[in-house]
Amino acid sequence: MRRYIERTRADLDPQQRRVYDAIVSGPRGAVLAPHHILLEAPHLAGPAQEVGAALRFGASLPATLTELAILVTARHWDQGFEWRVHAPLARAAGVSEESLNALAADEEATFASVDEALVYALCREVLRTGTLSDATFGAAVTRFGRPGLVELLSIAGFYSWLALLLNAHGVGGDDPAPSAGLERES
């Protein structure tokens, strides 16, 4: 059975079309793989695209940190599609090539910025353990405030959800490394 189906606008029912149009007219400008999957359940797709847009385009944290959090999450789930979309954005936002390469290889990454190092550590910790130590929680609140901490945890959770959807639908989930750039056919 074919898992991933990319439909054209003409293939969609009216509820799906409303969500499709909202995505295309929004800051993304295009319907990408996660949206195509979510359009199967438009009652989820609409709110999901709004949450995703809020996390990416309305966050109080700079793009360097939000894109890094997305990539740590993509790497955790071996999600090649999200890696391919967000690695160029992280690079353009200022995450170093050395850090991206280490993260892609699932090696311990180092960062020139204290903020990037904290985001990296926080995301890895919450994704590996499902919680944060008092030390990490306190450091994040001190550095980013409670709103910034909530944004980072929300990014890790939201992009974990997308990674599970993408992986289960056969979109870039079994790449040997997210940097491999291969989307498999199903």
Rank of each mutant, 00 (worst) to 15 (best):
G29Q: 00
E6C: 15
A10V: 06
C123Q: 01
L12Y: 10
A163K: 04
P62G: 06
A140T: 02
I23H: 07
S60F: 04
E116V: 08
I37S: 07
E82F: 01
S186A: 12
A41C: 08
T110C: 11
A135Y: 13
G58R: 07
G52M: 04
E40N: 05
V171F: 07
E50P: 08
R184I: 03
A63H: 06
A74R: 03
G172E: 00
G94R: 08
V51I: 11
F111R: 02
A30K: 05
E107W: 04
F144V: 00
D134C: 01
S96G: 13
A54T: 08
Q49D: 07
A105W: 13
D175Y: 09
W161R: 00
S25E: 13
I5C: 15
V72D: 06
R17P: 10
R7C: 10
V150L: 12
G52I: 04
G26D: 04
L153D: 01
A53E: 03
A105R: 15
N167Q: 09
T129N: 12
R146T: 14
L39Y: 03
R91N: 11
R75S: 10
L164Y: 04
V141S: 09
G173K: 10
H76M: 09
E185W: 12
V31C: 00
L118F: 06
D174E: 12
L12S: 11
R143V: 01
D11I: 04
L118A: 08
E67Q: 15
H36F: 06
H35F: 00
T64V: 15
G46V: 01
R128T: 15
R56T: 00
L127F: 13
I70P: 09
L153R: 05
L166G: 07
S179K: 08
R7G: 01
A102Q: 12
L12H: 12
P27V: 04
P176M: 13
R28V: 06
P34I: 00
V150D: 00
A63F: 14
G58S: 03
R124T: 08
E67D: 14
V85E: 13
L32F: 11
A93W: 11
R84S: 14
A45D: 03
F111I: 04
G148R: 00
P88K: 10
A168S: 06
D174S: 14
D13W: 12
L162W: 09
A10I: 11
E6P: 13
R84M: 15
A92I: 10
A177N: 05
S179Y: 03
H86K: 07
Q15S: 14
A93T: 03
P147A: 00
E40T: 03
P178H: 09
I23K: 02
R9H: 10
D78H: 13
A180G: 08
D106L: 11
W161L: 12
N167Y: 04
R146I: 14
A59Y: 02
A48T: 02
E82C: 11
E50Y: 00
P27W: 07
H76P: 08
A69C: 11
R124Q: 12
D134T: 01
E107T: 11
I37P: 03
L149E: 08
Q16S: 10
W83L: 05
I155S: 00
T66W: 03
A69M: 05
Q49L: 09
E185G: 14
A163E: 00
V114F: 14
A33P: 09
A90I: 01
R56P: 10
A105S: 15
G130R: 12
A74T: 08
